[in-house]
Simulated scan of single mutants.
Amino acid sequence: MKNKTVAAWLAFLGGPVGLHRFYLRGLADPLGWLLMVPTALGIYGIRRVLNFGQDDALSWILIPMVGFTIAGCSLTAIVYGLSSPEKWNARYNPGAASDALPGRTNWFTVMALATSLLVGTAVLMASLAFSFQRYFEYQVDEAHKISD
């Protein structure tokens, strides 16, 4: 029996490494393994900033990848948490009754929803702001080079 609350928390806490996908579909799920790629690239971008400074162009391409992955996994947690018990049990617990306990929403599910909404939105906005700031700074630097 796949529990909706557990899946929502796994999507929020371990989504960037595919934990929710592995919980729901098993270790053979290719998308679960693919989620690790942008996460690893984003973490590598953070390491590059720490090693080479903020002017490293590759890092400002890589860092938003982890942010967008976290935001996407937060959205997945919200989708899981908001699914009806009937829909959840039909999809992930096909042998269970449509109103079986693993598909029901409880306070832990609501906490996962609220936390995912709060953190996912903040990370998404921070990733967008970082990306646009770096892009516009790059454009200004290029304009200065042309004007000189």
Rank of each mutant, 00 (worst) to 15 (best):
M1C: 13
M1I: 13
K2C: 07
N3L: 03
N3Y: 05
K4Q: 12
T5E: 11
V6S: 07
A8C: 07
A8S: 12
L10Y: 09
A11N: 07
G14L: 09
G14Y: 07
G18Y: 00
G18R: 00
L19Y: 11
L19S: 10
F22W: 13
Y23Q: 01
L24Y: 07
L24Q: 06
R25I: 04
A28P: 08
A28D: 15
A28K: 15
D29L: 00
P30C: 00
P30H: 05
P30T: 00
P30K: 01
P30I: 05
L31P: 03
W33C: 03
L34N: 00
L35P: 02
L35M: 14
L35Q: 10
V37N: 07
V37P: 09
V37L: 15
V37S: 04
P38E: 00
G42V: 01
G42W: 01
I43S: 07
G45R: 06
G45D: 12
I46M: 14
I46L: 15
V49E: 10
V49Q: 04
L50K: 08
N51H: 09
F52H: 14
G53N: 00
W60L: 08
W60P: 05
I63T: 03
P64V: 01
M65W: 04
M65P: 02
V66R: 03
F68R: 03
A71R: 03
A71M: 04
A71K: 02
G72Q: 04
G72W: 01
C73E: 15
C73L: 12
S74T: 00
T76A: 13
T76H: 10
T76F: 12
A77G: 05
I78T: 03
V79S: 10
Y80P: 04
S83K: 02
S83N: 05
S83Y: 06
S84N: 01
P85W: 11
E86V: 14
E86A: 13
N89H: 11
R91P: 02
R91F: 02
R91G: 06
Y92V: 09
N93T: 11
G95R: 11
A96E: 14
A97V: 02
S98W: 15
D99E: 10
L101N: 10
L101G: 01
P102W: 00
P102Y: 00
G103Q: 06
G103F: 07
R104L: 11
T105D: 06
T105V: 05
F108W: 12
T109N: 07
A112M: 05
L113M: 15
A114S: 14
T115Y: 02
T115D: 02
L117A: 12
G120M: 03
T121H: 04
A122C: 09
V123F: 10
A126H: 10
L128M: 11
A129P: 04
A129S: 10
A129I: 08
F130G: 02
S131W: 13
Q133V: 12
Y135H: 08
F136R: 08
V140F: 14
D141C: 08
D141K: 13
E142R: 11
A143Y: 11
A143D: 11
H144P: 02
H144I: 08
H144G: 08
I146E: 10
